[in-house]
Simulated scan of single mutants.
Amino acid sequence: MNRLRSTPTAIIIATLLTSTQVSAQMQTETLEYVVDGETFTGYLAWDDQLERRRPGILVVHEWWGHNEFAREQARKLAKEGYTAFALDMYGSGKQAEHPDTAQKFMREATADMDRVEARFTKAMALLQHHESVDPERIAAQGYCFGGAVVLNMARLGLDLDGVVSYHGALASPIQANPETLRAKVQVYTGGADAMVPSDQVAGLVREMQNAGADLTLVSFPGVKHSFTNPNADRIAEQFGMPVAYDQEAATRAWRGTLQFYRELFEDQ
């Protein structure tokens, strides 16, 4: 068990900034919380018509920061019967509009892996303590930068049932260990992703096989980086980046993710 679940008396402090009823069932909250003296802003979404406690899913944003795309993924998960928390890895107000700023924020956030873990586990604790969540059923999914984050949290042995990476970097200085790896792993990548070349894909497969991981990896032929984000085409045109939205790949990845969660949590 990780340190969060082994300390059920931990005090969780967060400030509710806004609470919204999106539909007759959908509820959302914007939460402000503190990690190591720095303020972060996350976003919760759940269906309050479901009486049972349900699995919680953490959503980790792209390198642009905690934005509307990440929040939309949380709402989509809530519509499927989960409680989702779109967490913040950068700090309140740190949303990038230019790749140079995004790169700066990402480097600052990932300069210390202990810092990455602390920010992730604080958000995980907030989700686990929500009244709608079964704290023993937690998974995480991430996009681009966030995909790398969730894979690294699995590598570190956090008590996650599963992680899903969408067009995330697959290489890491951390290597999965068969003695600590707990999560089942699902990866979606583009076959034409210049930021995640084939050697990274092959390296991840070797790493996960050596760790005895339950790995599902899907590579979409001809698909570029950021294929799940409808804004990718605008970004490609504006900044000349090798990214592109692909509706078919995004739809297949989403369907595969929902099937992954159904199978993951039905086993418990």
Rank of each mutant, 00 (worst) to 15 (best):
N2K: 02
R3Q: 13
R5K: 15
T9P: 00
T9I: 08
I12K: 12
T20E: 14
Q21H: 07
V22M: 12
S23A: 11
Q27E: 10
V35W: 08
A45G: 02
D47T: 06
R52I: 04
V59A: 07
V60S: 11
H61E: 08
A74N: 02
A78R: 03
L87H: 01
M89W: 06
M89D: 09
S92F: 04
H98K: 13
F105Y: 15
F105T: 07
R107V: 06
A109R: 02
A125G: 15
L126Q: 06
L127M: 05
D134H: 07
P135M: 06
V149N: 01
V150S: 10
V150K: 03
N152I: 00
N152A: 11
L158W: 04
H167F: 15
A171Q: 07
I174G: 02
N177K: 13
P178L: 07
T180I: 02
L181P: 01
A183C: 06
Q186I: 09
D193T: 12
P197H: 12
P197W: 09
Q200Y: 02
R206F: 09
M208E: 06
N210S: 14
A211L: 09
T216H: 09
V223Y: 04
T228S: 04
T228C: 12
N229V: 05
R234G: 10
R234N: 12
A236R: 09
Q238D: 13
Q238I: 03
M241D: 04
M241S: 12
R255H: 13
D267S: 13
